[in-house]
Simulated assay, not measured.
Amino acid sequence: MSSSTLSSRIDASVLTAIAPRPPKAKAARQAAIIAEFGKMLPALLLQFGATTALRIDHLLAQVAHESDGFCTTEEYASGAAYEGRADLGNTQKGDGKRFKGRGPIQLTGRGNHRQFTIWLRKIIATCPNFETNPELVAIFPWAGWAVFFFWSTKALNALADRDDLVAVTKIVNGGRNGLDDRAKYLAKAKNAVAKLMADAIDAAQKFTSIRRGSIDFERVEQLQRALAAAGHYLLTIDGHFGPGTEGAVKTFQRSRGLTADGIVGDKTWGGLAPYFEKELA
């Protein structure tokens, strides 16, 4: 699947797969955010180069955490803790509350709202002045644009390429706050995006692909034995397609000039064929 094709398939259904089941009081708001943000994602992901699986995975994981599982576009706290924060551009009395976190990625501070306005007016000349009207950052479509303002100006695609959750989190939140929760969302995002990719592969090939989490234990065992024979990868032959097997698949794919997505489709099966002990079932 090409990067542009992948980004075009990231929509509300993917967000729903990542999102937790909310309390009843938050359900309607979550559904509205997922619907609105989902509509914007395909075009914005493509426009700002967040088109690979890892870039999409990390972006969605961070947004999911910052938005309380897509349940809010406004920070629950008052913002008083940001009062006087010169690093956020909060130089006037009341700036802490006035410029508290808004948007799915919680854009915070007068300075960021000013820079967001400057940035977006180069794309949409008639957009609002968010320094004057910060509350609009919590409303779509501006809330969606705010995500990509932050993501692109902080060059987070490069960190996502390294699969470096700690580094991405430090830029988004200034430290390791909520790292465990972000890791859980990242795992869910990786699974949802990998499923999209596997489904697309299956539609275009004669063999059903397998990927991390596949429960075809016999075929996974066969895969593991072939990988071990092909490159002496250190694998436990257990029939479970976990992170170790996925890493070995990616290593093998890179060695053969294939797309290193960890999904075992026709081309990967073909490359491993000489190492199988028996014919594919």
Rank of each mutant, 00 (worst) to 15 (best):
N112S: 11
S78M: 07
I124M: 10
F148G: 06
I237E: 02
G257M: 09
D163Y: 02
K195W: 08
D161C: 13
A204W: 01
N157V: 04
A167S: 14
A143C: 00
A248N: 03
A183F: 05
R211W: 13
H58S: 00
A228P: 00
V63Q: 05
F48N: 04
G101V: 01
H65N: 14
E66R: 00
D266M: 14
A204N: 15
A35E: 13
G101Q: 01
V264T: 12
F149Y: 15
E83V: 12
T236H: 10
V168D: 09
A155L: 12
D216K: 13
N191P: 00
L186R: 15
Q47N: 11
K26A: 15
G49V: 05
F217W: 05
I34K: 05
N173R: 11
W269K: 00
A192H: 03
R162A: 14
A204D: 15
K100T: 05
V147I: 15
A228T: 15
K39Q: 13
K170S: 01
R110S: 13
T245C: 09
A160M: 12
P22D: 08
K267M: 06
L272A: 09
P22T: 08
T208D: 09
Q92E: 12
K190Y: 12
T117K: 08
V166H: 11
A64M: 11
A61W: 07
P22F: 03
H240Q: 10
T236F: 10
P134N: 10
S3C: 02
P23D: 13
G265K: 08
Q92M: 14
L196M: 02
T108V: 02
T16I: 03
F217Q: 12
D266C: 08
E75I: 14
G79V: 09
G270W: 06
R121W: 08
R121N: 10
I10G: 00
D164W: 07
R176N: 14
Q224M: 10
D163H: 05
I10Q: 00
F140Q: 07
A248M: 09
L258A: 06
D216W: 14
A138E: 02
A187R: 09
F207I: 08
Q224H: 15
N112R: 09
K39P: 04
